[in-house]
Design a protein around this nucleic acid. Sequence first.
DNA 1: CCGTTGGTATTACATTATGATACCTAGTGT
DNA 2: ACACTAGGTATCATAATGTAATACCAACGG
Lengths: 261, 261
Amino acid sequence: MKTKQNTLYVGSLAKGLRLLRAFDESHSELSLSDLAARSGLDKSATQRLANTLYIEGMLDKDPGTRRFRPSHAWLEMAYAYYWSDPLVGQAMPKLINLSQELGETVNLAELSGDHIIYVSRLPCKRTYFAATVIGRRLPALSTSAGRAMLATFPEDERRAAVETWPIKPFTPSTTLDRDAIRANVEAAVHDGYAISQGQMILNELAVATPIIGPEGRAFAAVQCSVSAHTWDRERIVAEILPKLQDTANAISPSFQSQRAL
Amino acid sequence: MKTKQNTLYVGSLAKGLRLLRAFDESHSELSLSDLAARSGLDKSATQRLANTLYIEGMLDKDPGTRRFRPSHAWLEMAYAYYWSDPLVGQAMPKLINLSQELGETVNLAELSGDHIIYVSRLPCKRTYFAATVIGRRLPALSTSAGRAMLATFPEDERRAAVETWPIKPFTPSTTLDRDAIRANVEAAVHDGYAISQGQMILNELAVATPIIGPEGRAFAAVQCSVSAHTWDRERIVAEILPKLQDTANAISPSFQSQRAL
DNA sequence: CCGTTGGTATTACATTATGATACCTAGTGT
DNA sequence: ACACTAGGTATCATAATGTAATACCAACGG
C-alpha cells in the first residue's frame, strides 16, 4: 500500500497515526485485533506499531485485558496545543468572566475546515458529558457557532458552504434542510449572531457571536448553550446576547490586523 | 542510532513522536531547524517526518513563516482521551456542582507516575493561563493534590516517594526541603486532606482531597485553589473543605472495587 | 478435552527510510 | 547591487529497516 509515492512521506509514521486515530468516543479501549480492524493494517504491522506507541508512552495497556487506551500524553498534547493557539490566551479570562456573569455554560469554538471544534468549555450546569469536553468536532452547519462564523463570510462563500459542507443528524430535530440552514445563516448576517435549537441535543438552545479576524472574517465564536425548558429566544436575546457580544467584541480587536491562523 | 534492537519497535514512528514532543509551553511554534535541534534528528529526517505529520494533519504550517504548530488534531486527541478515562465521566457533574457552590476554581488531578496531571479544570476566577488549561503535568510532591494522594499510600512507599520523587522550583516559595514535604504529607495522612501554599504561584493556597481507588490507594484528587489574599487556612478548612470532601467521597465509591487505571 | 480466538515471537526478504548533497529562496549587511 | 548566510526544498544510490508470513502460546468456552 502506498499512500504517497513520495520520498518525503514516511509511511510507518502515518500508519502509527492511523492507530492513534482509531480511538474515538465510541472506541475508547481497543485490543490488538480491534486496532488492526479499525486501522486497516495487518496483524503484524499493528503489533509492531502499537508496541512502539506503548513503549513511547503514547498508549497505556491494561495488563489484565491487554487492551490499549490513550495515555496521559494525549492530554499533554492538548496542553501544548493551548500554548500555540494565540486565541485561547486572549480569550480565557474574558470567557471566565462571562460564564460567571451568566451562570450558564460558555464555549469557545474555532473553525476547522468545514467543522467547528470546541477549544474551551466552561460548564456551569450539569449537561451531558460530550458538552463538557474540549476537542469535540462538529459539522459547522449544525452549530450556532459555525453559522455565526459563516455569516461573516462573503455571500458566494456562504452560499457554497451551505450547499456543500457536511451535515449529520444528531437528534431527531437536527436541521437537515439546507434551505432552513441558509435562512438561519442569512438571519445571522443581519443580526450579527446565530441562535439554534436542538441541533446536538434535544431541548438545547444555543447562541453564538463571531470573533472577527483579519479581513473581517470570523475564525472563532463565543457560544452559550442553555436549556429550552427555562429559556426562550426572547429572554436569550435580552439577557445573554448583550454580554456575549461584549465578550466576543472584546476578544476580536487583538486579531483584526494579524495574520490568519 | 538504535533506540532498541527490537523488531517490534518501529524507529520511524518513535522519531515522529519525538517531533510532536518538541512542542511545549515555551516552544509553541517551531521551524524546521528548531524541530531538528529540539528532537536531535538530522535535517533530512526532520524534513521527512515533519512533512508526513503535516500531510496527515497533525501539524499546521504557517505559509508565511513556514513554521509548524500543533493542529486541532491535538485537541481531538484530548477528546478521545476523555472517553477512555472512566474517572472523568463520573466526576464531571459533581465537579461542576462543586465549583458552582464554591465559586472558586476546582480541579481534578490524576497521578501519572511521580507527577500529577490536571485532567479537568473549572476556573471561576481570573488566574494565570497555565492554571486554566488541562494537561499540565507537575511534580506530585509540589502539589496539594499529589500530597493528598500520596498520603493514602502505605508508609514505606510514602517515605520512598518523599525521598526520591522529583521536585523543581516554580516560585521562590516552592518547598524544596523534603523534610518539610514529608511533614505536610504526614499531616495529610492524619487529616485526610492536604493544604499547600505558594507552590506553583505566589499567594496561592490549594486544598486537595483524595479520590480513593481499589485497595484504598488514591489515584486522583479533587483540588481547589484560592488566593491567599482573600482566604486563610482556617476559613478554607471551615468553608471549602467539607464540600470538597463530599465531592471526593461521592466520586470514590465507583472505583473502590474496580481494576486500577 | 479440544477448538477457537487473540496475543506474542521469529525470520528471510525487499521495500522503505535514510542522510549526504545539491538546489533554491529570502533576508542581511556592505 | 553584491555576496553571504541561513533556512527550506528536492534528489538519489544504498542498505538498513520495516515487512508479512508463519509458528508458538495462553486463555476461554462448550
